[in-house]
């Protein structure tokens, strides 16, 4: 596998998801990795609850999203406030 097949992703976890993984980490993945892979890697409870997923500040991202080099992935538990 050449360096060209790798993408660099910043992963940020928030609120109680920080019990399952680091608040912020920069990791390399193979090209065409989906958000699902990261949900699985950290065993984030996406089946149990509607996690809120943002890529580069854009919300409503689904697990099928294919990550691109340099993406910032932010994952939150269901939340709201005001």
């Amino acid at each position: 596998m050449t360096e060209n097949n790798l993408i660099t992703i910043t992963i940020k976890l928030f609120a109680n998801l920080r019990e399952l993984g680091p608040a912020k980490t920069i990791e390399k993945f193979q090209k065409d990795t989906t958000v699902q892979v990261i949900l699985d890697k950290y065993q984030l409870p996406f089946k149990e609850m509607k996690l809120i997923i943002l890529i580069n500040g854009k919300p409503h991202i689904t697990p099928e999203y294919i990550l691109k080099d340099g993406d910032v992935l932010a994952i939150f538990p269901p939340l709201a406030g005001g």
């Binding site: 538990p77 939340l79 406030g81």
Partner: peptide, 20 residues
């Protein structure tokens, strides 16, 4: 034990910041 109960309304700081 949900987000509002555990962190209060300030749980919004990070998500609104992430959203720019």
């Amino acid at each position: 034990g949900g987000a509002l109960n555990s962190y209060g309304t300030s749980v919004l700081v990070n998500i609104i910041n992430e959203a720019g």
